[in-house]
Amino acid sequence: MNAFRLLADLTHLLSIIILLVKIRTTKSCAGISLKTQDLYVLVFISRYLDLFTRPLSLYNTPFKLVFLATSITIVYYMRYHKVVKQTYNKDSDTFKHYFLILPCAVLAFFINPKFTFIEVLWSFSIYLEAVAILPQLVLLQSSSNIDNLTGNYVFMLGAYRALYLLNWIYRFFAEDVVRWIPWIAGLVQTALYADFFYYYIKSWRNNERLKLP
């Protein structure tokens, strides 16, 4: 364990809490992409199957359970909660996210640490997480005004994987750990946030509304 990784996991947890707070307090999921949330549920389920096969860990296990529970809760709210589901921007959330699932599955089939069910699914979840934010970013571009909580949510989500990159750099030098699959996927994932980060920081500096071109 190192500070980068701890900060990264806390940032990830914070992003999910921000989203839950937004949905619960405003009773609205305007500006949130249900497709991205669906993909996250898929990411967590396919990644945390090892909850049943590997020894539990005091640190990882609670996080895995919280990530699974919160991501499923968010999708439940957006699909079935009578008030919240009315506020979902169905017609703007148009990204064909199914086109993301198949390439990730094929890639996982060929590129994985070991050709077993758990490892292929784990690789699938790593690749899928890298692109899962795309529907959300596309939805933000079509949103006229992005509310602060949504902007903060996406920022934290991008920041957590950027912190993981620092964690991997640290572990490479300190613990001689090499992990090609999450490294490359993590780089792609963080790169996808690049323009969002630029506009988010610019709007924060000029103290103006966040607006994506």
Binding site: R5, D9, H12, D50, R54, S57, N60, F63, K64, F67, P113, K114, E119, W122, Y164, N167, V177, V178, R179, W180, I181, P182
Partner: peptide
């Protein structure tokens, strides 16, 4: 490659 199998991260 060995390390990839040790999923000790979230």
């Amino acid at each position: 490659k060995e390390d990839d199998k040790k999923h000790d991260e979230l």
